[in-house]
Design a protein around this nucleic acid. Structure first.
Lengths: 343, 343
DNA sequence: CTACGCTTTTGCAGCGCTGCAAAGCAAAGC
DNA sequence: GCTTTGCTTTGCAGCGCTGCAAAAGCGTAG
């Protein structure tokens, strides 16, 4: 590969010092119009483009942030990724993706020493199997924003929606439709399942508010929040002596899997079983039936995450860990109320 | 942030030169066991981790490759991304994502001068609106692998499945089911729609092989390959005086949108309209009905793309542009043959 | 004992840029 | 006329690492 144009080359052509070229390129003040123009011309003539690597090395930063997610082929994460990339780009940052496959060991390693130093200046982390211990063992100098699961211990920012409230609303919606036996799919009654547990809590609270108690055998745990898990759990529920007439699924994928099972048994959604999902992924807006769901404000989550992270990166004394509640709303679609205008 | 441990620090502790530490860290030969051990100990004691940025600057490479795709929230691309990341990681490379939003100008700019120099050593590009001219104007020193659309002009590798053959098979499948009026959704009869046009060609060839001719009014163009486009096109088709009894959709998302429209009009899939998709995304395996589709070997595409790119990056004299045909197969599901075992 | 060839280790320059502080310079003030 | 002031420009060091070539060690041969 032929040698690239450097600052010095431009400086020579423009008849100034390389430092001045740097000043022009970076838009620093205090450069006379005359000088600026000459340098600009030289830059264009040579087709100079700054070497980002060298700049970053000199500045001691990388200009990149890492986004760590469990799975990339999960629509929720790919939609989030998209927004994060956009938000970061606007602010001059690149995004490195790291997919953990939900492996707690991978997550732990990542957070413990940032995997490869100086490859990124900070991390937006959406953990799955990260326990309190792993969090405590983290590299304390690594600027960190966590999405979803865990709440903050003060050293990082945490952004997520109010899972309890959202789940209460979702369940309340089903109760309001007069459903009698409401199931929940997605509980994770173990250390790393905080988010799932908050949803179960909301599920219970909604029942309690009406003086009812959910049937314990209808709260189904699943290892992940994907279609197969949803399909499997639903099959189990339909095999019960008294199958449910409604399900609250902890993700839209779970809901899609569940619906698949219901329909394949010749039952109808929502007539026989009403279904509510969670995440509001695009799939749910075009599935058969379309899915009633909890819609978190993903754009806001992504933007806030990037902003907070850059703030941490930028300040010598990191700000107090912030707990951010992103807004959410219940979007009612066919999977609970049926087709609005049948043909 | 406290100062990081450098090679020099390790050297001092181990009582050797920093160059020797570098040799040990990089596993170069010709280091005595004795020296190696001492250095190792020092490395561990100080918790030294190499500064990737500095290394890359010194080596004149970035250790990163870019993956440029139109949309990240499209399952096909996020599934591909996942495989690419995995393949690159194994080979010691990081992946930078760039989403073009299908903007031809963005694509052109990217390919013309690699956006930001030295941020990546090569590019895997899945273009949407890249015409021959833009390709010709590209930075010739940028190692490049293109997926999907365009065929190679010799200066880069191109990897894709045989669109014509695949589309022929898909259409033939519908013809074999005895369908009479088969529509196609997704044609793009303009310069940048090469892939779409190849699919239309296959569609025509399958008809021709049976001595039939597709109805021109049933070949519908769409700007993108997403759900809304599929839904819209299908609505148009169903409004025809003689609506189709089968549709070949140029992506699974289009198929999902089309199915949505069909069902919302009270028609049944496949009884009234059979549907074939393209891409084999996970959604299609869990939708109602599940989608018959053309399944490209994504894992192979990703792995080959990364391998070829690294080969280009590594060699001073770039290899001849390779045209790689990835395998594909038709996967038959409910959207054409109905439920296999109704309850 | 010197010479030679081989392996191991070292020193230095430099990747391309920016931080810092000093130098240069023109206009203003005494 | 000489100093002060304030803006522009410059030079140099250094970010942390590796390439290169020379130096040092070391065993063997002459």
């Amino acid at each position: 590969m032929r040698r690239e144009v450097t600052l010095r080359d431009v400086a020579e052509l423009a008849g100034v010092s390389s430092r001045t070229v740097s000043n022009v390129v970076n838009g620093y003040a205090n450069v006379t119009e005359h000088t600026r123009e000459r340098v600009q011309r030289a830059v264009e003539q040579l087709g100079y483009r700054p070497n980002v690597l060298a700049r970053n090395l000199a500045q001691g930063r990388s200009g990149q942030i890492a986004l760590v997610v469990p799975y990339l082929d999960t629509p929720y994460f790919s939609e989030l990724l998209q927004s994060v990339i956009r938000a970061a780009r606007v602010r001059g940052y690149n995004v490195l993706i790291d997919q953990t496959d939900g492996d707690p060991e991978h997550e732990r390693a990542f957070i413990a020493h940032g995997s490869r130093r100086l490859l990124f200046d900070g991390v937006i982390f959406s953990p799955l199997g990260l326990d309190q211990q792993a969090l405590a063992d983290r590299d304390p100098t690594l600027p960190l924003v966590i999405l979803g699961e865990r709440s903050s211990d003060g050293g990082f920012d945490h952004i997520g929606i109010d899972d309890v409230a959202a789940s209460r609303e979702a369940t309340e919606h089903l109760l309001g439709l007069g459903r009698q036996r409401i199931a929940a799919i997605g509980d994770q009654p173990y250390a790393t399942g905080e988010a799932a547990q908050r949803r179960t809590q909301g599920f219970r609270e909604a029942h309690a508010a009406r003086g009812r108690t959910p049937r314990e055998e209808m709260i189904i745990s699943t290892p992940r929040f994907n279609r197969p898990d949803g399909a499997r759990a639903m099959a189990h529920l339909l095999d019960l002596p008294e199958p449910p007439d409604a399900v609250f699924c902890y993700s839209d994928l779970v809901a899609l899997g569940a619906i698949r099972t219901i329909v394949s048994r010749g039952l109808r959604v929502p007539e026989d079983v009403a279904v509510v999902g969670y995440d509001d992924i695009e799939d749910g807006r075009f599935s058969n039936p379309t899915i009633t769901t909890i819609s978190p404000d993903k754009e806001m989550i992504a933007t806030t995450a990037v902003e907070r992270l850059l703030l941490r990166i930028g300040s010598a004394t990191p700000p107090e860990g912030l707990e951010v509640r992103a807004p959410h709303r219940l979007i009612v679609r066919e999977s609970t109320t049926g087709r609005v205008s049948p043909p």
